[in-house]
Design a protein around this nucleic acid. Structure first.
Lengths: 294, 294
DNA sequence: CCCCATTTGAAGCATTTGTTACAGAATAAT
DNA sequence: ATTATTCTGTAACAAATGCTTCAAATGGGG
């Protein structure tokens, strides 16, 4: 990975140096400096040969300029340029405002939160809108029946998704954790079924086996996994990768939950009419059972 | 929903190719892809050696990936990345900030994500570090037994917390959803017990009733609730307020999960030694049961 | 006109890079 | 368990890159 200059108060160090030295440059160096500044800092990221050619000078000139600017050699200058470009390009999609002053949070908590924010950002960035749409669509289709299953850690995510889907639409099933009863669910799956699987790090072979069995039956498979990708990625029709790494012994499933919640919102919107009826009916029933209870 | 559109000529060719091929990547290639996407596109502008090192793979793997993406070799891919970076940098800064350019996400998705980020930010800001520490401490104390319970929506959060706590320490119980069996748990609760309750909007009276019964028995009560505060707030010893509102028919429990995950990390660290033993033992047992199964 | 200082590129060299071939490792499939 | 298949790193190689040396330009002052 690129190491971020820790001291990036000014991000355009090379440019400044070029300007400072502008008077002390020789004609050939000036040609070079010109090219360097023309589409700064990218032009400096080519090989020394190409750069020299582009400026119409020789390679030693490039090295001499780099030295004049205080670098050890060309690669060092290039590294500086790369860091600058990296800093410029970094796009905070959704930034968390600087950490509030005077808080006494432990650094650990802080790091944890920062990591989570990074994960969410990157997950959104890597998410293919088309995939999201396709998944939302297939899950909103009431012609299809839906089956959900999570792993050891992700079972809660599956449960959360199930909990909401079940309220929004009919035909939703949460598979039991024990593989020995899966055949009973499998037999009900067909081309009009959707199997939503959650499988992150420490991928579970049982899940993969189930996925391929389901695939054989023509089931549409939606996979939620981590950045590295469960082996089920190959079997699945739609794959959603979420970043899960945080400074902890455990993985964070927040990014997965973000997508799940966004999907719930999308699906709900998509079939607003039917859903509201359904929810009202449910509310009524909840009230009734409450009356039962006391 | 995200709107699909005709393929606009986007500048992020390599990224697209990476996403397209995501399913067909081998594990090592995925490591590499991860590094490539992490600080895209700059990380790909290093030498092949550095890049391979950063990803923890060998240089041939880099070449193989480049070929898989349709490039002739590594330099070709790098040139493509350089062009992309160049194109991005030329854009006015204003255009680069905020939501990434060229994404076809719907405004709905965008709003949702922004709301979630706001929630997380504000939740952290409102969180009293002292409360956090106190809760972490009380939950790390193995002298105490822990009981967890969630509501209709938050049951998954309770389950997630339970799932991890149970691995880290002994004496953790997840209460059933049905109130009629709660007395059986209540009878085991005392001054050395902790009851963790999740109760957000549409506060459930049953939960409140349980809380006060537990309180009478001297149980320490930890409450996760929303920004408005469940009625249990008065009974509880420690209250954690998380923002839950998003543009959806449903509340978002992401902020709650953030705190839960942070707590898990904190607790784990706090009793690292014992926990690791325990986890190793568990791993062994998991392996054994796997053997049973097949 | 010659000398000296400075600038510059050509040529050559060591190093690093990008690539290929191959064999050990890991998986999956009998 | 054994085999076949796929994956992946090591090692050797070729091709550049980055650098050094040195001599040819250049360009003022005497």
């Amino acid at each position: 990975m690129l190491q971020m200059g820790a001291q990036v108060s000014r991000s355009e160090i090379v440019k400044d140096k070029l300007k400072d030295q502008a008077g002390a440059l020789t004609p050939a160096e000036r040609l070079l400096s010109d090219v360097l500044l023309r589409d700064y800092p990218m032009s400096g990221l080519q090989s020394i040969t190409k750069l020299a050619e582009a400026a119409g000078v020789s390679t030693p000139t490039v090295i001499r300029l780099a030295r004049k600017l205080g670098f050890d050699g060309f690669p060092e200058m290039q590294a500086a340029l790369r860091d600058e470009a990296s800093a410029q390009i970094k796009k905070p999609i959704l930034k968390r405002e600087g950490w509030p002053q005077g808080r006494k949070d432990s650094p650990a908590f802080r790091n944890f939160a920062e990591a989570v924010f990074d994960n969410l950002n990157q997950t959104i960035e890597r998410l293919d809108p088309a995939t999201f749409d396709a998944v939302a669509e297939v899950l909103a289709d009431t012609q299809r029946s839906i089956f959900l299953l999570g792993g050891r850690i992700t079972r809660s995510n599956a449960d959360y998704f199930f909990n909401h889907l079940q309220i929004i639409r009919p035909g939703v099933t949460l598979l039991s954790q024990s593989p020995n009863v899966w055949p009973q669910y499998l037999i009900d799956m067909g081309p009009c079924s959707v199997l939503v699987i959650f499988d992150i790090r420490r991928y579970e072979t049982d899940l993969a086996r189930l996925a391929s069995l389901a695939k054989e039956r023509g089931v549409v498979i939606v996979l939620f996994t981590d950045q590295w990708g469960s082996p089920i990625s190959r079997t699945a029709d739609h794959v959603i990768n979420a970043l899960v790494e945080v400074p902890s012994s455990w993985d964070s499933t927040l990014a997965i939950n973000l997508i799940v919640e966004a999907l719930i919102a999308a699906i709900q919107t998509q079939r607003l009419e039917q859903a509201t009826d359904r929810i009202e009916a449910l509310e009524d029933m909840f009230l009734s059972t409450r009356i039962f209870r006391k």
